[in-house]
Design a protein around this nucleic acid. Structure first.
Lengths: 128, 128
DNA sequence: CCTAAACTTAACTCAATGGTTAAGTATCAA
DNA sequence: TTGATACTTAACCATTGAGTTAAGTTTAGG
């Protein structure tokens, strides 16, 4: 039964909002194709829970599943992320501005570096 | 009362998963600072509903609110989106590959253009 | 054929979302 | 000081989300 799915930003962002699902995707980024149980193994939740996550990812169009025999292999489909990035890109100029400020700050001669409110402009960045 | 908030991807993506909230952010992208009721006006929901959306955006660190007199002005803070984009960028190669294929296809001499499985590579794109 | 492996489905819990109405608190303007 | 404006809070409701356990289905292997 193939469910109709509109590849909306809603579903994409909602799918990405869960750390377990992001971890699943991260796994699929590096391996091309994994079975459901292999995919589930590292997680501290039950298989049905993972199944539901896979349903969400699938509804968002972020993965495809293919059954061969009794095993189902999952594969990443990053396409919907492009739309999400497109949406975000619109706001890029805001941190671009901040980065430019940062850059300008450190390109200034050392003696001129005066933190506006006690600290230099800071670049935030983090990995998941 | 300043609530502690970890600027996690969870919150960011969750905040972006709602179309009303994305619309609020889109509004704040172009105007720099708007009062709560001005912000709420175009939407077909009640003020308290908008308030809750603003709480979510605020908890995600995507907006800041400042009260002056009886009006509260909201301001965009796009910083958390940078982390989100950083996460997504990791997957960029997947659609980059698709685009490269598309490009290669159309740069090939016309007579050589033979769709692999009945159709040329397709570029999906959509606006919100 | 029988059993184990690899899912799948069903039924249930609990908390969080997104919305409502109604009532409350400041603040500004006359 | 009185009333309207601009929020804010509280209480409630329905739906969804993330998880569970328990009971199916297929399929593969001995």
């Amino acid at each position: 039964m193939v469910k109709y799915q509109e590849p909306s930003l809603d579903r994409t962002f909602a799918a990405l909002a869960d750390p377990t699902r992001r971890a699943l995707l991260a796994r699929l980024e590096v391996v091309d194709s994994v079975s459901v149980s292999d995919l589930a193994r590292p997680f501290p939740v039950t298989l049905p829970a993972i199944m539901k996550h896979l349903d969400v990812l699938s509804d968002a169009g972020l993965i495809t599943r293919e059954k061969t025999g009794r095993t189902v292999s999952c594969r990443l489909n990053a396409a919907p992320m492009e739309e999400a990035m497109g949406w975000l890109r619109r706001y890029e100029r805001f941190w671009r501005e901040r980065l430019d400020a940062l850059e300008a700050y450190f390109n200034r001669p050392r003696k001129d570096r005066e933190p506006d409110r006690g600290a230099p402009p800071r670049k935030t960045s983090d990995k998941t």
